[in-house]
């Protein structure tokens, strides 16, 4: 179909708008000068400073642990929720369940953060757990957030799945659990990977909820970045941002190639 000049201009403008800030961030990260408008020569000194910043490194490690834990929990919960919604048919409380699964998607993060914090405070008073806030409370909060997204991804794949393989296995006498583990899970595996990655990224990126449910001594990387960014522009953050962009770009291009190769072959 003919593409009009107007649409092409809109596309160019849109992509420039999306990528200009990212490009500038990368350029600034190699600028020896602190001032964004002055090019002080090429330098990697901000990367050096970043690797010596203990607070950032500790926060990054905690963030990765939280993200891996919560993505795994979110995936397990999301698969169960998807099975409930797609396969269990009618049951009492289905409406409420469906509402609870999808509501976190549209819940403002400040409300989710506040609500979970109030729960943790109430629980600590009532049963003495969680004793202070940190890794466990952030991981629980992120699992709840990630579960909603994981459910959406897995649910749509499960609903599209051809059931004849499962039926064949059942006819041959396999028990439901075995059918699920040996047939269903491998068939929906790509959606499981996508759901895990989505939950992982959401957790790594979250600052609002984490700020509510983290405690002293347990700061995640976004919290650390947020508090340093509030004080103004800092070259170390430029370097950190560039590293994140580089990792993501490499991973996405690899995934893209892999998918393209599979489709082509």
């Amino acid at each position: 179909m003919r593409r009009s000049g107007g649409l092409l201009a809109a596309l160019l403008f849109g992509y420039a708008f999306l990528y200009l800030p990212i490009g500038l961030l990368v350029a600034w990260s190699f600028n020896a000068s602190r001032v964004v408008n002055v090019w002080g020569g090429f330098s990697t000194k901000w990367y050096g400073e970043l690797t010596r910043n203990e607070a950032f490194l500790d926060a990054a490690w905690l963030s990765l642990k939280v993200a891996a834990t919560s993505a795994t929990a979110a995936l397990a919960l999301g698969v169960l929720a998807a099975v409930v919604l797609v396969r269990l048919g009618r049951f009492r409380g289905r409406m409420l369940f469906n509402g609870l699964v999808t509501a976190p998607l549209v819940m403002p993060e400040v409300i989710l953060g506040l609500a979970l914090l109030l729960l943790f405070v109430a629980l600590e008073q009532a049963v003495g757990w969680p004793d202070g806030r940190g890794f466990a409370t952030i991981a629980i909060a992120h699992s709840t957030m990630g579960m909603a997204y994981a459910t959406v991804v897995v649910r749509s794949r499960l609903a599209q799945m051809d059931r004849s393989l499962e039926e064949a296995a059942m006819d041959l006498g396999a028990r439901p659990l075995k059918v699920f583990l040996v047939i269903t899970l491998p068939v929906i595996a790509p959606s499981l990977a996508a759901a895990w990655l989505l939950a992982f990224t959401l957790s790594l990126d979250d600052v609002v909820v984490a700020q509510f449910v983290s405690g002293p001594g347990a700061t995640t990387l976004p919290i650390e970045v947020f508090s340093s960014v509030r004080l103004g522009v800092s070259p170390q953050i430029n370097a950190l941002g560039t590293l994140i962009v580089a990792v993501v770009a490499v991973l996405i291009v690899l995934a893209w190639r892999l998918m393209a190769a599979r489709r082509g072959g």
Binding site: P222, F226, V229, V233, L240, I252
Partner: peptide, 24 residues
């Protein structure tokens, strides 16, 4: 989709460098 996978916080922060009084 790609920008969505990079840090939201850092992309917002990049605008600080663009928009501030002595910014780009």
């Amino acid at each position: 989709i790609l920008p969505f996978w990079t840090s939201f916080l850092i992309r917002v922060y990049a605008w600080m460098g663009i928009l501030k009084d002595e910014g780009l």
